Amino acid sequence: MESENLKDVSSLAREKYNFYQNKLGYTIYTLLAGSYCSIGMAFAYNAASGFYASPSLSGISNLIMGIAFALSFTLITFAGSELFTGNVFVITVGALSKKITFKNAISILIFCYIGNLMGASIMGAIISMSGVMSNTAGEMLETFCLTKISLPIHQLFLRGVMCNVLVCLGTWMASKIKSDIARMTALLWVVAGFVTSGYEHSIANAGLFTMNALSNSIPPGYMQGVLKNMCFVTLGNIVGGALIVACGYWFANRRTSESN
């Protein structure tokens, strides 16, 4: 049923590989995607801080964060950039369809991931130094970051899986939708879904941890907790995007694609 759409995604993977040959251009695009995640997170925390501070409204603060963080994915999709989590789906489909080799797929994703981390961290530092992550937003940021680093490994992994299932479903739907308004609506739903639910996005976390480290006092063991979070959330993001969404749709439509 989705074989034609999968062909489009595999062709997109080949285009991404061709663009990857321009290392400077591709690096800039990965830095931009990471920075957009930090910009969206700063917006989300400030938008939700007023609700978080009010006991009667605190229950909807996560929903407000999810809606506001959709800014990041709107920028990534419409302004143009290369985000690791969405690329896990696209590049995996391209490798399964033999548009690119698995060796090239791994190389692209590693390069993209490193660039995203750098972009998110640099922008996180800029945002923190601007002073906007203070008062209630800063308190909220500190609380959420300390919670993230204290979660057990299996929860970090599974939250990473569920996050990128939703992100990659958003990427998948956006590739099929022609109307820009409809694409924005689809992105809003998936982003609100993973943020409100408390799932974990590795690139967004990189920006959050940087902002918190520069805006608040960090406790002993903070960096070890950050490393634990990033490792297992990233692994979960890969499994959610590659094994569940990409492999799921590709194998379900494999016979149809071959017959065509």
Rank of each mutant, 00 (worst) to 15 (best):
A204M: 11
H154E: 02
G221I: 06
L187D: 00
S215C: 10
M133K: 07
E258R: 15
E200C: 04
S202M: 07
S197W: 13
G241D: 00
Q155S: 07
H201E: 02
F251P: 05
V226H: 02
I238N: 00
V165W: 02
C163D: 01
L169P: 01
G198D: 02
C247R: 03
I127Y: 12
T136C: 04
T234I: 09
F251A: 09
T143N: 09
F232A: 06
Y249F: 14
W250K: 05
V161M: 12
A192F: 08
K176R: 13
M184T: 15
V245D: 02
K178V: 01
G240H: 01
V195F: 04
R183L: 14
T196I: 03
I203A: 09
S150N: 09
V161G: 00
H201Y: 11
A246Q: 00
G119Y: 09
M162S: 06
I238P: 00
L151M: 09
T147P: 01
N216L: 12
F194M: 04
G241L: 08
V165E: 00
E258V: 15
D180C: 13
G225W: 11
F251D: 05
G115Y: 07
F157T: 04
K228M: 13
E139N: 14
A242D: 00
A192D: 01
N205F: 08
P219I: 12
I126H: 07
G236S: 01
L156A: 04
Y222M: 11
G221E: 05
P220G: 02
S215F: 12
A186W: 04
A120R: 13
Y249M: 08
K228V: 10
C168K: 05
